[in-house]
Nucleic acid binder design. Sequence first.
DNA 1: TGACCCCCTAGCCAAACGGACAGGTAGCGG
DNA 2: CCGCTACCTGTCCGTTTGGCTAGGGGGTCA
Lengths: 228, 228
Amino acid sequence: MDTDVRRDITLGRRSPMAKTRIVVADRNVITRVGLRSILERNTGMAVVAEATSYEAALDAVDEHGPDVLIIDLDLGDDTTRGLKLCEEVTDRYPATKILVLAQKLSEMIVVEALRRGVTGYLCKDDVKADELGKGVRAVQDGETVLGKGVGSMVARGLGSTRGAAEHLTDRELEVIRAVAAGLSNKQIAHQAFISESTVKFHLQNASRKLNAHRRAEIVHRASAAGLL
Amino acid sequence: MDTDVRRDITLGRRSPMAKTRIVVADRNVITRVGLRSILERNTGMAVVAEATSYEAALDAVDEHGPDVLIIDLDLGDDTTRGLKLCEEVTDRYPATKILVLAQKLSEMIVVEALRRGVTGYLCKDDVKADELGKGVRAVQDGETVLGKGVGSMVARGLGSTRGAAEHLTDRELEVIRAVAAGLSNKQIAHQAFISESTVKFHLQNASRKLNAHRRAEIVHRASAAGLL
DNA sequence: TGACCCCCTAGCCAAACGGACAGGTAGCGG
DNA sequence: CCGCTACCTGTCCGTTTGGCTAGGGGGTCA
């Protein structure tokens, strides 16, 4: 493993000369500038690239092979693409550690991210300036860094979710969005050109996948997961 | 009034020497640092104080009497407090212009904020670095700055909402949160030590206020407004 | 070809919900 | 004192829902 190689070279401690190379992926300019500013106060760190989309993030990792990728998984309309990205980076560049910087905590996302090799998960609103640098350094050293509230989520999440959290199909998502808009099954059926039975069918499946029992809860969870 | 005095001094146009004094209120360190960094590239601007709570924001305005208050209305668990803050600042310090920097757009919040004297409304994820400085300067000059998508919201919002959007009471919010958790009226009643009728009563009122007709829609709207 | 997944449909029944009545209490401020 | 608000309770009725069982059709991939 690459990891072992690096450990041998650095003898478990980074050379004081080598800067930690970081790629930041976040759609928000302010956050990118803020991160750069905070991290580069630390003389041992350099933000070598910024990205605002999933593609650009992957390209940046491709090109710079950074030590740490700091990413907000929500770079577009579909958070699951962020998860795919993590998987890809972990597979292709095992030496690049991933630190997720989330806007809000979602148990599903946290658990899925960790499953895909993410070793750091912090919440933007909770993190303090000095914790950022420490967090980056820690994940680079192979440690796992979980922000406030994340740890307990993991404990519950990994315990409860047997297997992997199934993700919603297109049709299910479509129905859920209609539910969120306050439509009845009959109205949704008419809108989607399917029967009322089918609407109920999709909702049943969505309920199971999201571990919800009432449509209001489905909406809440989907909303919390950034699916709407 | 303070306002008149200050206006007289500046004769309606800023002296080229005078820096634009800014107070930033945001719970997120990264955003605060980022904002400071971006704004202070512009030599005519200075962030004179930062705040992370509603109280601190008001104190900071109190103490520094800034030209512009840049604020994310969501500084705590209750966004309506941010709206109250805007009202208070507008009343007590009419010379201080307010620029809202929102995480996500909610029609209700946008409309209510503008009603309370906010003259700038930008979305963090959409704004570009140079637009920030321009936006600050514009609101300081008395212009109204609305970010991408905000304008159309205002058009629809001010048109549809007759009167002012009533805001949810504590009890209503409590019930809505329970609904979002997937509880039935009976369960909610038991949890809140009230009768099932009362739960329905609160939900009816909440429906009217949020212009929703189904509990799923209530949850969606409340969630979109950052009330959960 | 069979396994698997997504999508679609049907019928049943108890429970939950929405919407509408028609009341009651308590506190606060003009 | 009156008006206003938040809060609480009840009954009625039709509609919607959640949960269940039991299928068919079409696509992909080993």
